[in-house]
Amino acid sequence: MTTETNAVDRRPAVSGPSTGGAARGRKSRKGAEGGVLNVFSHGMLIVWALMVGLPLLWVLWSSFKSSGDILTTPWSLPDSLHFENWANAWNKANIGKFFLNTIIVVGGSVIGTMVLGSMAGYVLARFTFPGNRFIYYLFVAGMSFPVFMLVIPLFFVMRDFPGIPLLATYQGLIMVYIAYSLPFTVFFMTSFFRTLPTSVAEAAMIDGASHLRTFFQVMLPMAKPGLISIGIFNFLGQWNQYLLPMVLNQNEDKYVLTQGLANIALQQGYEGDWGGLMAGMMIAMLPVLIVYFIFQRQVQAGLTAGAIK
């Protein structure tokens, strides 16, 4: 009998999240080993949660403090709510302008990436034609190119592009973001379209729908879960993109948020308008936070999707 209780006590879990209600009435069965381990493991988990959570919360509460207070008493809570930090950041530090730039660029590039990526993925997944494999691997190979290696030639491709100015323009940045998001998007959407049943599309074709119509009205709606995952992935990646705009977008009027913030931070060192910078960082994080709060599961699944093959 004792052995059996012991075995039950030590039984490990397989999945985490669903812990809620069953937690009651376990005290009586808790073994000594389980108890110690539990205190230890919980302790470690809490310590790490504080290490990650506190610095992030710190940005939030610091955005309401005066710059002097942020520097001299970094851990104190705001004495009064300095809302002017947010206004200063938005207007004086140009965060408002950078925000708008970011919305335009990321808006255009996420939509573009999704449309072009799912078109290519669909064709590569569902049609056999000469060169199919070659094109697929050409896209997939892009995932392993270091961006730093590409960024120098890319700068000149953009500078010397015939006809349209691309350096430090919305259209240039949008196209580059799309191009650099395509490898993973195509890879992901190809495997996603492969998992969808063929019968529905065939039925649509028999009913006389064209390839185009089948794609937009039958296949895309069916691919919605995949589109959401990869859409979030691209949104976050492009919103937070730093290197590409750094090199290709060197005009302060066209700065995106990451550049603008880095610029402010690099210029001021341990002095300057820290309150404004903290508020600016909050503004820059806000859309991402909203997405993360609402789509927590999809975000986690989407971002880790690349590592599960």
């Binding site: 879990a13 985490g16 812990t19 069953a22 376990r26 808790k30 988990l45």
Partner: peptide, 23 residues
């Protein structure tokens, strides 16, 4: 820890730590 670190409870094989989702 999140998946296995929890105390075991009656009849449940699943003993993830409480609040695993939050962590």
């Amino acid at each position: 820890m999140l998946n296995v670190g929890g105390r075991s409870r009656r009849g449940a094989v699943i003993t993830g730590v409480r609040g695993a989702g939050f962590y």
